[in-house]
């Protein structure tokens, strides 16, 4: 479960990205964050994933108040959150398989277990054949799916995705969103942001429309 209570985020430069944001996303639920560029979508996602800290208010994820966690417990919490970055954040000097293995290596998983799970994650996103490929040789859609494979390889209870369809064509975008629906179907809590209004309704769940750092609506989608 994710619970934001009167959350505000001000960056060191003085820019206030979020103002008094409150919402609750139940375990196994899905929320779609929409809004124009610069509205505060990415900041909200980073706060939920423990990548940023709230300036005011509280962010509770799976029963843990992130504001009160120290650096190390917060880093450990991030191991249980799969984050799909807008710019992928892949390591281009490592193979696709090694990129996906990174979270497992950080968690200290055994070698055999690591590669079993890496292959399962790559298979899930349709990239099993690309295990040894270098990321630079993959298309934009494949890089996005590789990033998703890295996010799910640790079997996270919460999956956060920042504009996962942002740079993709319509067909690739639909395929990616289908993947998120399949994760939700197995009980993973999903929080994602998108500009893709055409597909928002298909996702179902909860919609958080943000403008100027405030959640304007928290309507339920069909």
């Amino acid at each position: 479960m994710i619970q934001f209570s009167a959350v505000a985020k001000r960056y060191p430069g003085g820019h206030e990205a979020l103002k008094d944001v409150s919402f609750t996303l139940a375990t196994g639920g899905l929320a779609v964050v929409t809004g124009p560029s610069g509205a505060g979508k990415s900041t909200l996602l980073k706060l939920a994933a423990g990548i940023e800290r709230a300036t005011r208010g509280s962010v509770v994820v799976n029963g843990q108040n992130l504001s009160s966690l120290g650096e190390t417990p917060l880093a450990v919490l991030r191991r249980h959150v799969g984050f799909v970055f807008q710019d992928h954040k892949l390591l281009f000097d490592r193979s696709a398989g090694e990129n996906v293995a990174l979270p497992l290596r950080i968690a200290g998983a055994g070698e055999a277990e690591t590669w079993r799970r890496v292959r399962a994650a790559l298979d899930k996103v349709g990239l099993l054949a690309k295990e040894r490929a270098m990321p630079i040789t993959l298309s934009g859609g494949e890089q996005q799916r590789l990033c998703i494979a890295r996010a799910i390889v640790n079997r996270p209870s919460l999956l956060v995705a920042d504009e996962p369809t942002g740079n993709l064509d319509a067909e690739s975008g639909r395929a990616i969103l289908e993947l998120f629906l399949s994760f939700r179907a197995v009980g993973v809590t999903v929080l994602l942001s998108t500009h893709d209004e055409a597909n928002v309704a298909r996702l179902g769940g909860q919609r958080l429309a943000i403008r100027d750092g405030r959640v304007e609506t928290g309507e339920a989608l069909a």
């Binding site: 990548i51 190390t72 450990v76 991030r78 984050f83 970055f85 979270p103 950080i106 968690a107």
Partner: peptide, 14 residues
């Protein structure tokens, strides 16, 4: 780059 990505996905300072 590797350090930043690692930290984002759960690597501690240690």
């Amino acid at each position: 780059d590797e350090i930043e990505v690692s930290q984002l996905i759960g690597a501690t300072a240690a």
